[in-house]
């Protein structure tokens, strides 16, 4: 009989985190970077839920709901920034964001 432990969830969540991190750091398309950020937030949620089950505590689930709230706000503001950036530069390539470069 196969059994699922908290370690299984931790490993999965860590893999998702690394994939998302690689996307954030390396991709040049702004939309893909935002989607990678969502991946990272989701992996954190997975961790919270797994530990909520491990510790038999409902607080992890509550915290996951707050994380989802923050992710929704982040997506709205991030995509708003993307639209403003696109209007200014006519591209969604992150390499075009050089205004603050000295």
């Amino acid at each position: 009989m196969l059994e699922i432990t908290t370690n299984h969830f931790l490993v999965l969540s860590f893999l998702l985190f690394v994939i998302g991190l690689v996307g954030i750091i390396t991709r040049r398309n702004m939309i893909t970077v935002l989607m990678s950020i969502e991946l990272v937030l989701n992996s954190v949620n997975l961790n919270l839920i797994a530990f909520s089950y491990q510790l038999s505590d409902l607080t992890g689930q509550i915290f996951a709901i707050f994380t989802i709230t923050v992710a929704a706000g982040e997506a709205a503001v991030g995509l708003g920034i993307l639209i403003a950036f696109f209007r200014l530069h006519d591209t969604a390539n992150l390499d075009a964001a050089v205004e603050l470069k000295g």
Partner: peptide, 13 residues
């Protein structure tokens, strides 16, 4: 991931 939440008794989440 939502399906995985169900496996850990987090139905509402």
């Amino acid at each position: 991931i939502a399906a995985l939440f169900l496996l850990r008794h987090a139905e509402f989440v």
